[in-house]
Computed example of a mutant assay.
Amino acid sequence: MDSIINFSSISDYNSFNNNETLHPLVSIVDLSKAAPRKDYKMNFGIYCVILKDTKCGDIKYGNNYYDYQEGTLVFFAPGQVVEVNNNGEYYQPYGKALIFHPDLLHGTTLGKHMEEYNFFSYNTNEALHLSEKERKIILDCFSKIEYELEQSIDKHSKTLITSNIELFLNYCNRFYDRQFITRDTVHKGVLDKFENLINTYINSEKPRNEGLPSVGWCAEQLNLSANYFGDLIKKDTGFTAQEFIQSKVIDLAKEKIFDVNKSISEIAYELGFKYPQHFTRLFKQKVGMSPLDYRNLN
């Protein structure tokens, strides 16, 4: 594996793929113009979304490979290091890529809520798989952005370009919602596994010793990124993963509260709360009364 290739600017990525730089902060890249390549690593300082048109190397992020097939989209954010592996053989990449620098977003509507597009931090086996109809919509979005890049830059350019990027990202949100439903075989059992994981954890000694389970920890146990996992649980249940964990903890708390040999503080510590007042606050928020009032109902 060669040394890491740093993509700090739009021109860096364009040069690597033999594309002309029409705008210093954004580009639609035709990957078929790139020279044949083999295994390499990329360090992104820009946002990059790749639409794959054919088999062109396996993309690895962290310790695992993307579920990355023909007709899929993958998303990379600044700060990510990604490896492409083709077993040392040269291959010709095909497809399109949208790249844009974080500086493009300053002062724009998109810049104010860019962090809401969680799929930029999805990890392994979490690529967006497109239907042919969806692929055409994505290419149409790319085409609109490319059209603007081919025009002379004027006072409208930035607004039109970022608005079309936002439209593209909103379509990706819609298509991911569809994927959470249609890829049931891949996601089958995640909620059941999550529920079993929480039940096993909170009924052990771990809460007292290690505290409450975090969403990140649960996602890691299920081999999913925290954001992908959180979005999947929200789509399945209507609740955030954190709310789901809290509901399980409160259900167990309701049982424990009727053990009059234990104080409310002792129960709080057993459940993983560092401070009893935090337990009392959450209990009252979820149940509508304090733990002590709930105990006195018996």
Rank of each mutant, 00 (worst) to 15 (best):
250 I>K: 06
205 E>P: 00
191 L>N: 03
205 E>G: 13
201 Y>E: 02
188 K>R: 07
258 F>G: 05
258 F>R: 03
235 K>V: 07
247 S>G: 09
216 G>K: 15
202 I>M: 03
235 K>R: 00
253 A>C: 04
246 Q>R: 15
188 K>M: 03
252 L>P: 05
242 Q>L: 14
240 T>H: 04
253 A>P: 04
202 I>F: 11
222 L>D: 08
190 V>P: 00
250 I>M: 01
229 F>A: 09
191 L>C: 00
237 T>Q: 09
200 T>L: 15
245 I>Q: 00
254 K>V: 14
216 G>E: 12
247 S>Q: 06
250 I>Y: 04
237 T>K: 00
191 L>T: 02
210 E>Y: 15
248 K>R: 01
222 L>H: 02
223 N>D: 13
204 S>C: 10
258 F>D: 11
244 F>Y: 08
205 E>Q: 14
200 T>S: 15
226 A>Y: 09
209 N>C: 11
239 F>D: 07
236 D>S: 11
258 F>C: 11
193 K>V: 07
208 R>Q: 15
225 S>D: 03
250 I>W: 02
191 L>S: 04
188 K>F: 06
213 P>C: 06
230 G>F: 15
224 L>F: 13
213 P>S: 05
196 N>F: 06
216 G>M: 14
194 F>W: 10
252 L>T: 04
199 N>Y: 12
199 N>S: 05
205 E>C: 15
255 E>S: 13
190 V>L: 05
217 W>F: 14
191 L>Q: 02
191 L>A: 08
209 N>G: 07
224 L>K: 13
218 C>Q: 02
221 Q>G: 10
206 K>W: 15
216 G>A: 13
239 F>R: 01
209 N>S: 08
233 I>K: 02
238 G>M: 03
196 N>Y: 10
213 P>G: 01
247 S>F: 14
234 K>E: 06
235 K>D: 06
191 L>W: 02
232 L>M: 09
256 K>S: 07
257 I>V: 12
196 N>W: 10
253 A>G: 00
245 I>Y: 05
259 D>F: 13
243 E>I: 09
195 E>S: 14
221 Q>F: 14
252 L>W: 09
219 A>I: 09
191 L>E: 08
191 L>D: 00
234 K>C: 01
218 C>G: 07
192 D>Y: 12
254 K>S: 13
256 K>C: 10
255 E>L: 14
240 T>P: 06
203 N>L: 14
228 Y>D: 03
206 K>Y: 15
215 V>L: 04
203 N>P: 03
226 A>D: 08
226 A>K: 03
211 G>I: 02
217 W>S: 13
199 N>R: 10
253 A>T: 01
258 F>V: 05
251 D>M: 10
205 E>W: 14
214 S>M: 07
224 L>S: 11
259 D>W: 13
